[in-house]
């Protein structure tokens, strides 16, 4: 259904992604770069939405576009917002490492089943019917991933949320104290 539309959308979004990534690598002034990383993250989140993975897209947007941009900006408040020039020999090493890692990842992705292939474990596993069909009658949550996260392994998710909440509170306490101390020394 609507395969051509998704295909064109995927293509366009990927072209945008490449353009943004090239600009990210080229710019030396880090302030626009921080904002552009947010744009990059929004683009990849739209790609996840096109691929019908709204939960991944939500995480990507919240972490990538929201928190990361703000953290980068907060860091620029403490350091300089300009990249130091790098020697060309080190740049070549970096390029080589990136190309080799990318090649390994592409090679590994060849082993994955094709998109929408009918003979993957996801389609053939005996538990598939339980989660994809019966969960609709058992707990009435339309999205299967949400059903699994929020109900079938709800205690696990509760533990995760407790951990993240504690970490967030700790970071907030540390940041608040540091800022107050700094302002006091400035006076």
């Amino acid at each position: 259904m609507n395969m051509t539309v998704s295909l064109i959308l995927n293509f366009g979004l990927l072209v945008f992604l490449v353009a943004v990534a090239l600009a990210l690598a080229r710019w030396r002034h880090l302030f626009p770069v921080a904002m552009l990383t947010g744009l990059f993250s929004l683009l990849s989140a739209s790609l996840f939405t096109v691929l019908s993975a709204p939960d991944v897209a939500l995480t990507e947007a919240a972490v990538g576009a929201g928190i990361t941009t703000v953290l980068f900006l907060a860091t620029f408040g403490l350091t300089r917002a300009r990249e130091k020039p790098v020697e060309s020999s080190r740049r070549l090493i970096g390029l080589a490492v990136t190309v080799i890692t990318g090649a390994i990842l592409v090679y590994a992705s060849l082993d994955m089943p094709h998109f929408g292939a009918p003979d993957t474990p996801v389609q053939e596993h005996p538990l598939r019917h339980k989660y994809l069909v019966e969960s609709q009658h058992e707990i009435h949550i339309p999205n299967t991933v949400t059903a699994v996260l929020g109900s079938y392994r709800g205690y696990d998710t509760l533990g995760e949320v407790a951990v993240v909440f504690t970490a967030g509170m700790a970071v907030l306490m540390l940041l608040g104290r540091g800022r107050r101390g700094r302002k006091r020394t400035k006076e």
Binding site: G38, A61, A62, A65
Partner: peptide, 9 residues
């Protein structure tokens, strides 16, 4: 959610 995140950013 995107609209909210965009605004905050």
């Amino acid at each position: 959610t995107y609209a909210l995140i965009n605004f905050i950013g």
